[in-house]
């Protein structure tokens, strides 16, 4: 395990951790909470705001609100300082419905760097994928975390 002060070996991290599912759980969505979620965001379409609508479904950005139970893979190195949230991306594919079992699986989707005069930034893209009981993919949500490394002297 490298010291938190050492630069991260990005290629080694990619080889060891990319695309391996490290968190998985099954859950259900509550219709009334989905409707509250949508209405508080200003949604007006009844398929998002009215649980009695025959096509009632979660709002498209719901995936961003779901979080893995384990933040990082086992044995992932610690790094100095706090990782900052660099953004969120949500890609719905099929409707997520209330009251049915859904599964969330999380993997490290990408690790990459950007360098400049002030040092190097390392980005970690954590992807959650959501599927139904028949294992149909319903969508995904990416969270990007960035850490800034100090230049080596």
């Amino acid at each position: 395990m490298p010291s938190p002060d050492q630069p991260l070996d990005v290629e080694a991290l990619r080889a060891q951790f990319l695309h391996a599912v490290y968190d998985e759980y099954t859950f259900t969505l509550d219709a009334d909470k989905l409707a509250d979620y949508a209405k508080s965001c200003g949604e007006t379409a009844t398929k998002f705001t009215d649980p009695n609508d025959p096509d009632f479904q979660a709002p498209p950005t719901i995936g961003s609100s779901l979080q893995p139970k384990q933040r990082m893979p086992d044995d992932f190195p610690t790094f100095k300082g706090l990782g900052m949230d660099a953004g969120k991306s949500v890609a719905p594919d099929k409707p997520m419905r209330a009251g049915v079992p859904l599964t969330a699986r999380t993997h490290m989707h990408d690790i990459y760097t950007k360098s400049g005069r002030s040092g190097r930034m390392v980005f970690f893209v954590i992807r959650m994928e959501f599927s139904d009981a028949d294992d149909n993919l319903l969508g995904s949500a990416d969270t990007s975390i960035v850490i800034r490394e100090k230049p080596q002297t």
Binding site: S40, C41, P59, T61, S64, K88, V90
Partner: peptide, 15 residues
């Protein structure tokens, strides 16, 4: 919450 801002943006699209 940042994710609420995402919800606002999606709502704007549907409006």
């Amino acid at each position: 919450p940042g994710i609420m801002n995402q919800g606002f943006l999606s709502a704007m699209i549907h409006r």
